[in-house]
Amino acid sequence: MIDFIQNTLDGITIGAGYALLAIGFTLIFGVLRRLNLAYGPSIMIGVFLGTFIYLHFDAGWLPVAIATVIGAILAGIYVERMCFWAIKEGAALASMVSTFAIWMQLEELVTVIFPERTYKFPTLGEMDYLEFAGLEMRAEHLIMLGIAVLMVGLLHVLLYRTRFGLSVRAVSENPAAARFMGINTGRVIFRAFILASAIGGVAGFLLVATDPTVTPKFGLQATFKGLIAMMLGGMGSIPGAIAGGVLLGIVERHMQAEFGAIMRDMAAYALLFLFLIFRPGGIMAQGVAAREAAALRRV
């Protein structure tokens, strides 16, 4: 029983990182309605920039975190310009394949500059375990959870209390109507991309800092963890992204503990597959469906 609770707790912590990735995915998907496969790889660029700062300047975790976010943003801007801004409307497939091409490019760039298989990454410091009623929690996990919650709170304020947030929501819901209101959709997309990349950078830092090794495969993992968590929660929904991320974290953690790494990954994809077949709208589907039904009744 203690094990079960312990694994659930650990799962929630990892899930918080996944949730941030899924939020970034959902933000980009919301304003663009296109899939950005290069999301994870652009975060990976940030992570490697962080590693670079760490290795060459022996920097502490805060400068490394900042470098990670900056690197993710720069790579994100590159992806946005190449794969979305430059490709004309209506060519969503070309955009998606283009993000894949850029992914390959970024991954190779990293392996050329960092030829070793793995690199060290700073942890959030040497910290004690916190114990409570037989459960233990690594202090950095707690910090990770705290930062994730803080990020979600900030994001909520940004989306629901600011003019920029209003424009992001407007473009996500209906780009044509947003243009009619005088909103410059291209600029909103660009800024939403920067925001998503920054969130991704934080998520990348947190995920790597708790498991302090870096590999070029991080890009692939980040893209697919974020994608799975987004789909589990329901595309375009931020509460969904959080729920999906946490669910994914918990399921992975339990499967890992019981059956090992292969079953962990298997379970993640099986869960995704089952959700798509039986509940394609994700965890949050009920809300959307209920609203649509209500709208139909009132017309």
Partner: peptide
């Protein structure tokens, strides 16, 4: 009409004042 369906009425009005 093209109102923003998942936004509340108040926020819809605010989009009109975006500029």
């Amino acid at each position: 009409r093209l109102v923003f369906p998942d936004m509340n009425v108040h926020d819809n009005l605010k989009t009109g004042a975006y500029v």
